[in-house]
Amino acid sequence: SGFSAIDDDFYEELEEILIMGDIGVNATTAIVERLKQQVKEKHIKEPSECKQLLIESIKEQMQVDETAYDFEKEQSVIMVIGVNGVGKTTSVGKLAGKLKDEGRKVLIAAADTFRAAAGDQLAEWASRADVPMIGGKEGADPASVVFDAVNAAKARGVDVLLVDTAGRLHNKKNLMEELRKMNRIIDKEFPNAHRENLIVLDGTTGQNALVQAREFGEVADLTGIILTKMDGTAKGGIAVAIQSELKVPVKYIGVGESIEDLQKFNSDEFVNALFDVNMDDIGELHLPEEEAGETDAEE
């Protein structure tokens, strides 16, 4: 950026980048305050150096431990959870394909027995990944699907059991209790398995994703995030706020609708994209008549 000094305007532009990336007001304020402190301590004078410092610190914060992917190699049960339409079923299909390719013995449990054609959709993904699926009958009790699937996984010597669950908003008490119950059944029936609860977040989501992560974490310990739809123009910055507050790492990103469109999270790429702001003019706003003339589209 063409700044010659680290001044208020400069910090304001950084704030704008972070907020436009969905990091949110609170996390942005905290990040910029910390940055100001560091600039003082390290006697930084150059705006470009200051910006680099910011980028590096977010990269470091978002770094994923290599142990984060241990479950891929162990006997594990992965429950995939999240609100409606974020990409749970698709991500289960992609993960199944990936693990199968790595030579793992995979089983899918279709514990979304609620949404219209959820079972058919997952069955198609199971066939694409070439792995077996259990459950999926509309109206069945999801907890008993989980129970059956866990016991089938044990009996068949399955390496990785992937559990697709119905979309549910985090403010729906009954549905969240149902999830808690499913989680408990897995713990109880398969105590030796490596457990993962991956929350799927739509990369386009704004500040609500933080609330989602908080509330889902209340009923089932979150071990990671799958951030989907990152093939669009949204930056997925809310993951930074979530990492700050809840220490839940992004493990995978979804970058499309095909089976191979799941990638391990790369902190560098993510943060670079975050700062590669789309400063495209959003055009003329349809403000109320009396202001329209006085308000120009460019600030």
Partner: peptide, 14 residues
């Protein structure tokens, strides 16, 4: 449009 959409809603709608 999903009501939970963040900053990108303007790009999508436009």
């Amino acid at each position: 449009v999903d009501a939970m959409t963040g900053q990108d809603a303007v790009n999508v709608a436009k």
